[in-house]
Design a protein around this nucleic acid. Structure first.
Length: 578
DNA sequence: GCCGTTTTCGGCCCGACTGTTTTCAGTCG
């Protein structure tokens, strides 16, 4: 539905409709995408217009489509504007106006036809276009072809850190920060934004575009430059005067929706917010902007952590000064799901333990795969006994960190586990996970999860929805049933911190907390020591879900953690732990 | 097309860069 509305917006734009009508459709699309439940359910309750940004008109269109599978408005629109033109606007640098021009003047409707017209040098003779414009569109077309879509945060962060370090080293700037979706720690990143405070913008721009990682310069100006790296990532650098650093940081961190709300509030207070500062509208007097906190303070709000800036209720909460104190990496006291060489991990237990010690952890649960997962050298009861002896030995020698003996027990295709209860009873940590039969129907998958969660020894479920970012949809799509089941059986759900998993998703985890009062664990699922660093991705995900340290089990001291982990066994799969 | 503690009309966030133009439109974020 969001895609349809977005298509409508693009078609209206090409047609040259009122731009606020265009924006309204885009806004409605965005709202639907970030709404925590399927739009059909809202429609069934007759509450479409309760979603902000959806009014009577768009609600009627959605209803019509859900009822009949058709939308008359869209069909009329596509009679006026060929829907193929939407494809053209995906080319960077080619917007709705140019798409319309290309169609009307040259009859171009597809990327192929566009490519042909460029080869024949037809674009440069159009009004307001020249050879440079033609070249720019050509490059945009190439870029679109190369584009792999949004990249994973876990892949992008190291690149950002490298660029920031290089800029610091070569220019000596001190005030420098990632902005945009990187700073908001979104699970995927479209492009990288970096902000610098300096009075020597030109010098910094020169250094930036000459960095060895840079493949191509898209734009270079006095305050803003854009480049493409060899791996295809786009990086935008902005340089502002130090007095504007806070305002610029706020501005370029976004999100767009968050900023729009913020500026609306500013206007109502007679203030104007832009990237240079916050100003009085009546006399233009500057009232702040050096520090980011000032912007929020002056607007009467608490400072909002970047991870929350999505216009998902954080502005209201900040105005009422009831923002949660979000979990931080420093709150994490251990990792409850890592693998060792006993199964498919790359390192011996000892090395994993040393890595955990380095990170200041109190405990580490070694949760190897179990016997039916042959491809991952899963362990049977005897091997587990041997492994437990190794773990006990380590614990007898080292007191700073407690190793817990655990498994990521495989949930079989009928919902049974591949280890007997008596074997599970000997372990400290039992996390259940699906690794096979993922193409079963959702009902079947839910049945398997339900059966596993009712087992008194299964304390948690790993990567509960099974989604792989950009690769695989969630296999357990009925999130509400999953959360309700976890609540009823006292089973904890994992936020798996692997870069391509980040599962539960942020909005799922937020719902788990707010609607079901669930506590979660954040695990790296590390198969080697350095992957323990994925914890920061898991914590970021939890922050985007509005979680505090109290909501996450592995922020607890050892004693309290063990108490929570033992509750289900004591009650034999019954009540909800507090 | 949406919205309302200035409500049913009249607003709607704000600015940089580029190319082609002699003052601005288009695109992007």
């Amino acid at each position: 539905m969001a895609k349809i509305l977005r298509d409508i917006a693009t078609l209206l734009e090409i047609k040259g409709e009122n731009r606020f009508r265009v924006v309204a459709h885009e806004e409605a699309a965005r709202r639907i995408e970030s709404w925590p439940e399927p739009i059909e359910e809202v429609w069934r309750r007759g509450e479409l217009t309760k979603i902000p940004g959806i009014g009577a008109s768009i609600a009627a269109k959605i209803s019509e489509y859900l009822q009949t599978g058709k939308m008359q408005y869209l069909e009329e629109l596509t009679r006026e504007v060929p829907p193929e033109l939407i494809e053209l606007t995906r080319v960077p640098g080619l917007g709705p106006k140019l798409a319309k021009l290309l169609y009307e003047e040259l009859g171009i409707k597809s990327l192929e036809e566009l490519e042909k017209a460029i080869a024949e040098r037809k674009l440069r003779n159009l009004p307001r276009l020249g050879a440079k414009s033609e070249e720019k569109i050509k490059k945009g077309l190439e870029m679109l072809k190369r584009q792999k879509g949004r990249m994973l945060l876990g892949q992008v962060l190291p690149v950002v850190e490298e660029i920031v370090a290089l800029l610091k080293e070569k220019t000596g700037v001190e005030q420098i920060s990632p902005a945009g979706s990187v700073r908001r720690m979104k699970e995927t990143i479209g492009d990288i934004d970096i902000l610098v405070a300096s009075s020597q913008a030109e010098k910094i721009m020169d250094v930036f575009v000459a960095l060895p990682v840079v493949k191509e310069i898209l734009a270079k100006g006095a305050t803003k430059s854009s480049v493409v790296l060899h791996d295809g990532l786009q990086v935008d650098l902005r340089v502002v005067e130090p007095v504007s650093f806070g305002a610029a940081l706020q501005y370029f961190t976004g999100s767009k929706a968050h900023n729009i709300r913020l500026r609306e509030i500013a206007i109502k207070k007679g203030l104007k917010v832009n990237e240079y500062g916050i100003f009085r509208i009546d006399n233009g007097q500057r009232v702040g902007g050096e520090r980011e906190e000032e912007i929020y303070e002056i607007l009467g709000m608490e400072w909002i952590p970047p991870e929350l800036r999505e216009d998902q209720g954080e502005i209201e909460a900040a105005l009422e000064k009831r923002l949660p104190v979000l979990i931080e990496l420093a709150d994490i006291k251990g990792d409850l799901h890592v693998h060792s060489r006993w199964s498919d991990g790359l390192s011996p237990i000892e090395e994993m333990a040393e890595a955990a010690l380095k990170r200041g952890y109190q405990y580490l649960a070694i949760c190897d795969h179990t016997q039916s997962l042959a491809v991952a050298s899963g362990l049977g009861p005897e091997e587990l006994q041997k492994r437990s002896r190794e773990i006990r030995e380590w614990n007898s020698k080292r007191k700073e960190l407690l190793l817990l003996s655990g498994v990521e027990v495989n949930i079989l295709s009928d919902g049974s586990l591949d280890l007997a209860d008596e074997d599970l009873a000997k372990l400290d940590v039992v996390i259940g996970g699906l690794h096979s039969g993922l193409n079963q129907s959702r009902e079947k998958i839910m049945m398997r999860l339900e059966k596993a969660m009712h087992n008194p020894y299964v304390q948690a479920i790993s990567h509960p929805t099974g989604r792989l970012i950009n690769k695989r949809e969630a296999y357990s799509a009925e999130l509400d049933s999953l959360l309700e089941l976890a609540s009823r059986t006292g089973t904890f759900l994992e936020i798996n911190a692997q870069p391509e998993r980040l599962d539960l998703r942020d909005i799922d985890a937020r719902k788990a907390k707010e609607s079901f009062g669930l506590k979660m664990i954040i695990s790296t699922d590390a198969h080697e020591p350095k992957s323990l660093d994925y914890m920061r991705l898991g914590v970021a995900q939890a922050r985007r879900a509005w979680l505090t340290a109290r909501d996450v089990l592995n922020t607890y001291d050892l004693e309290k953690l063990l108490d929570y982990l033992s509750r289900k066994r004591k009650t034999r799969a019954g009540s909800i732990p507090d």
